[in-house]
Each structure stands twice: as C-alpha cells, then as structure tokens.
Write a protein that binds this DNA or RNA. Structure first.
Length: 186
DNA sequence: ACCCCGATCGTA
DNA sequence: ACGATCGGGGTT
C-alpha cells in the first residue's frame, strides 16, 4: 500500500517512527527505510525553517507528503518528507536504507538518483513514494499505519526495537542538538 | 558584491 | 582529523 496523505499530516515524531520499516520507492529502485530524523518547526534551532520561509526550505511549509530535497556541503543531496499541516514547517530526513551503499542521507540520494530536480514532488504517488509492505516473518513494531479504518493487511508482526538518539551534525543548534529525534532500527 | 558555513562523505 | 566543493542566506 502506498502511504496516503493522511500518513504524513500527523505529528512529526510519530511519522518519523512509523517510517521505519517502510519502503522508499523511486522509479525502478526501492529499499527499506532504517534510519530517520525529525525536524520540527521554527523553534527547533536545527530545523532549516528556524529562520522562516526561504526559497530553499519552502517545501517544509507544505502539508505532509512532499519531498524536500536540498544540496548540502556543495556536493550531496538530502531527502526529507514534509509532515503536519500546510504552513507549519516540519519534515523527516531519510538517513539510511537497508541496502549496500545507502547508509547515509547523501549516499542514498546518490544511489537513487535523487537531486534538487525532484524537490517538491508529491510523495503520495509515483514516481517517488513510500510503501507499506506487511511482513510475514518480521516487521518494525507498532508502526503499521492504519489508514481510514482499514486494518493492517496482515502478517505476524514481530517486535523490532526502535533506537532513539540525538540528531547527527547539528551541534550548532545548542540545546536542541540534544533532542532525541533520530530513530533507527537494526 | 562578499563572506561564512553547512541535516556529508571519503580518505588519512 | 580534515579537505572537497558550492549554494543559500545574511550582511554590506
């Protein structure tokens, strides 16, 4: 099932945790998401929107479910998905996939061919989207999203621990650098 | 027009 | 531990 708009227009920390174990799909490539970080609102000093809306970060202000892709360090792209409601700047950074060479936000974008060209894409339909693939043998715990009363499509879910740590590379954000808003599995 | 620096990565 | 590499964003 392709994750619908209602998956993304929720609390950012909840969306971040629920994205673990889901599959990122772009054109002919796909892989399981295993590491994410949340960036939430203008009060979050590590958030790109901390200083208000600009040309670069405007996608963060859109309602949930749009790709915010930006260039970092002059040579790498990073993929985020906007969350919550229109006008509130927040997003989840996809940091790693369960795939060789996709262990890092810059590396996974390079591998999937995601650049600023794809910035702003609606992630609720092809070519770029995130999919729930109910597991038969194992799946991350408690993050099977239930859309509009529809139940989980099935499968015996085995509890997989979600680790929580401070975010990477945001030491400049002062106290906010210590917020435990990085989530990962396995 | 100028300057500083970054949600990274690969190599040393 | 550090250099690569360049655009965004604030300031002059």
């Amino acid at each position: 099932m392709i994750l619908p708009r209602s998956f993304y227009t929720r609390d950012t920390l909840q969306v971040a945790r629920d994205l673990l174990g889901k599959y990122l799909v772009y054109k002919d490539k796909s892989a399981k998401i295993i590491e994410v970080e949340a960036y939430i609102g203008q009060d979050d000093k590590a958030c790109h929107a901390a200083c208000g809306k600009t040309k670069r970060n405007e996608v963060m202000f859109k309602k949930g479910g749009f790709a915010y892709i930006y260039l970092i360090y002059g040579m790498y792209n990073c993929l985020n998905i906007s969350t919550e409601n229109e006008g509130f700047p927040a997003a989840v950074l996809i940091r790693a996939l369960d795939l060789p060479g996709a262990d890092g936000p810059g590396k996974l974008c390079r591998l999937f061919g995601l650049t600023r060209v794809q910035n702003g894409l609606d992630v609720t339909h092809p070519p770029l989207y995130i999919e729930d693939r109910p597991a038969r043998h194992a799946s991350p715990a408690r993050n099977a999203f239930v859309a509009d009363g529809q139940g989980d499509a099935g499968g015996e879910d085995i509890v997989e621990k979600i680790l929580k740590t401070p975010r990477i590379g945001v030491d400049y954000a002062g106290k906010d650098a210590q917020l435990p808003w990085r989530f990962l599995i396995k």
